[in-house]
């Protein structure tokens, strides 16, 4: 391997420092006893204690988790179906529209997605009386809609790289197409489905703008709560919350990276 030029190495160092220094600082400040961020008031874990006693945060976190679990699961089911349809059925009526609708939600600005879904829910309510109130249900639907796009793309690209004759072989050996899907296709795309689920879960936990549009009074997701708090400035208990999230996520990603590396 050729040595990297000094320029490249320094840009890499700068880039990674740029990406990680803010995160490291948040973690450090979360153990700061002082209320003012930059004044070091000694080591303390009191903000974690306050975090756990803050019922608003806990409620919001619980709602967000419920939404994320539900929407990630529905998105994985629909996204997998869509991914299979796109990868395996080359021609069907409306395929262009279908694939356009699959990929568009990923790049659509959140304000537009949020606004359009809210207007849909309001119109639906006028016409049919459903949804009677906005909250868990409407946010879940919104998150499912944009997350299934990601699942579909992941599943589709996994299927594209998979040998199509595996499914043909199973059919050739007497497997009915539906059976073949359960015997061969699904087990082989399971890793892609898991990755898609995790991504959908994370996206749902992450979303602020869309949820702000389609939620009703009284239903605050975790990002909505955090946003309302940080609008007013830096806040120590948010530092503690951020630290928890950073540590959990980094631990998970690091672990799966190590496992993947050992396997190859």
């Amino acid at each position: 391997m050729k040595r990297q030029s000094r320029f490249i190495v320094s840009v890499l160092a700068f880039g990674y420092a740029f990406l990680y220094i803010p995160l490291v600082l948040v973690v450090l400040y979360s153990f700061n006893d002082s209320r003012i961020a930059t004044v070091w008031g000694g080591f303390s874990t009191r903000w974690y204690g306050e975090l756990l006693r803050n019922e608003q945060i806990l409620d919001a976190a619980f709602l967000s988790l419920r939404i994320a679990l539900t929407s990630a699961t529905i998105a994985t089911i629909f996204g997998t179906m869509a991914g299979i349809a796109l990868a395996r059925f080359r021609r069907f009526k409306g395929r262009t529209l279908f694939s356009g609708m699959i990929t568009s939600p990923m790049v659509m600005p959140e304000v537009i997605t949020g606004l359009s879904l809210l207007l849909l829910f309001v119109s639906l309510q006028q016409l049919t009386g459903w949804p009677a109130q906005r909250g868990f249900g409407t946010i879940t639907i919104a998150h499912t809609t944009f997350a299934m796009a990601y699942v579909a793309i992941i599943v589709q690209s996994r299927l594209m790289s998979m040998d199509e004759s595996l499914e043909e072989a199973a059919m050739d050996l007497g497997g009915h197409p539906l059976r073949v899907m359960f015997d061969i296709t699904l087990p082989l795309i399971a890793p892609a489905m898991v990755a898609g689920w995790l991504l959908a879960f994370t996206l749902s936990l992450d979303d602020l703008v869309i949820a702000s549009f389609v939620s009703g009074p009284g239903s605050n997701t975790l990002p909505m709560y955090i946003f309302s708090k940080v609008k007013l400035g830096v806040s120590p208990d948010i530092n503690a919350l951020a630290t928890l999230i950073i540590l959990i996520v980094s631990g998970g990603v690091l672990l799966s990276w190590l496992v993947a590396r050992r396997r190859t």
Binding site: Y16, L19, Y20, I21, P22, L23, L25, V26, Y29, I36, A37, T38, T202, L205, D206, L208, P223, I226, F227, V230, G233, V234, I238, N239, L241, A242, I245, I246, V249, S250, G252, V253, L254, W257
Partner: peptide, 25 residues
């Protein structure tokens, strides 16, 4: 992996991290 890792951390919190950095104090 280090490029992808921030993807999984809340976007809002990552923006928030810069508030602490760029504050007047």
């Amino acid at each position: 992996m280090l490029i992808i890792l921030p993807f999984w951390i809340s976007f809002l919190l990552r923006v928030y991290a810069w508030m602490g950095l760029m504050n007047n104090y």
